[in-house]
Simulated assay, not measured.
Amino acid sequence: METVKLGIATEYIPGRVNVGLYVSDNGARLIDSGLDDEAGRKIARMLEERKIPLQRIVTTHSNADHCGGNAFLRKRTGCSVAATKLESVVIENPFLEPLVLWSAFPFGELENKFLQAKPSEVDLIIENSGIVDESGLEAVPLPGHFLDMIGVRTPDDVLFVADSVFSEELIEKYAVMFVLDVGAALETLDRLIRAEAAWFVPSHAPASENIVPLAEANRKGLLRVSEAVLESCGEPASREKILQGIAGRFSLSMSVSEYVLNSAAVGAHLSWLRKRGQVAPVVEKGVLLWRKTR
């Protein structure tokens, strides 16, 4: 397992989900743990070969691809797990992630490792802003994507920004980037544009010394989807009908898991447009419809 060194004590492990590594005198801190047991096993093996004890995993948020290795690593190393209060509830009760997406207990096709990690205990509840522990890692609030997501800044001034931004390739491929709160996600992008750090490390894009172009691309992508959702409400339309139109507009083919993710994201855009007074809900013949306001 290769790592990329970004500071005296800060590295990251590139992959489908970039995992942060901060090594101090008393051991290592991970920033997230990857998708599953296999990701955890590879990380454990790498640390064992380097003879570095794992002290703690700081989990940015509870999406399965960020905490899926927690259970394996905690069992193998006895490490601590830290997360914010809201995110810790899902980390310890991971069926809640597909429950949030589907708004009911999940059916079988949603009970998969991409939407539901193995449960792992969180033994350190942290605030979403401020110093995490004696290592000097600092939590940075990054609202919008999930319940209470954080970024993590290391003493080397490397800022891990989790899922606040996605690569331009992913935006082009999937069009609809998952968020639960569009307004908060846009505000987070504004803060990232103003932020200063030696390096920025997104979870789903390469590390960069300048986050501004990527933040702007994500802003453009979010607003493009909001515009498409608003246009779909020219005639009263259900969320399912709106998502069908979005899929056609951006040539999306979806698995069941991708469908519920995109449906939740469309719901987030509708909530944001309603807050701005651009759409309004109405129930007709037992169907919740959305229409543009005058």
Score class of each variant (00 low, 15 high):
R56P: 00
A237H: 02
H61I: 00
N262S: 15
M149K: 00
N210F: 11
L21T: 03
S88P: 03
K75Y: 05
E209Y: 06
N93Y: 15
S167F: 05
V17N: 15
K220W: 11
A44T: 05
K42Y: 07
A184E: 15
T60S: 10
I131Y: 02
K113W: 12
H269K: 07
V132E: 01
K42F: 04
D36I: 00
S203T: 09
K173T: 13
I52N: 01
F200L: 02
P98C: 11
D157K: 00
M254L: 15
T77G: 07
L186Q: 11
V225N: 14
R153A: 04
V282L: 13
D148R: 05
I8S: 15
N18K: 15
S255H: 15
V122L: 03
R294T: 12
A104Q: 15
D65T: 14
V140Q: 04
L261E: 15
P53T: 07
V287R: 12
G27F: 00
Q278M: 15
G245K: 07
G27M: 05
G234L: 12
E121M: 01
D163V: 06
I52T: 13
S129Q: 13
I13W: 12
N262K: 14
A215P: 12
D156L: 05
V23P: 04
S103M: 15
L214V: 02
K292I: 05
G267L: 04
S120H: 01
E258A: 14
A44G: 01
D36F: 02
N262T: 11
R74S: 02
S203W: 01
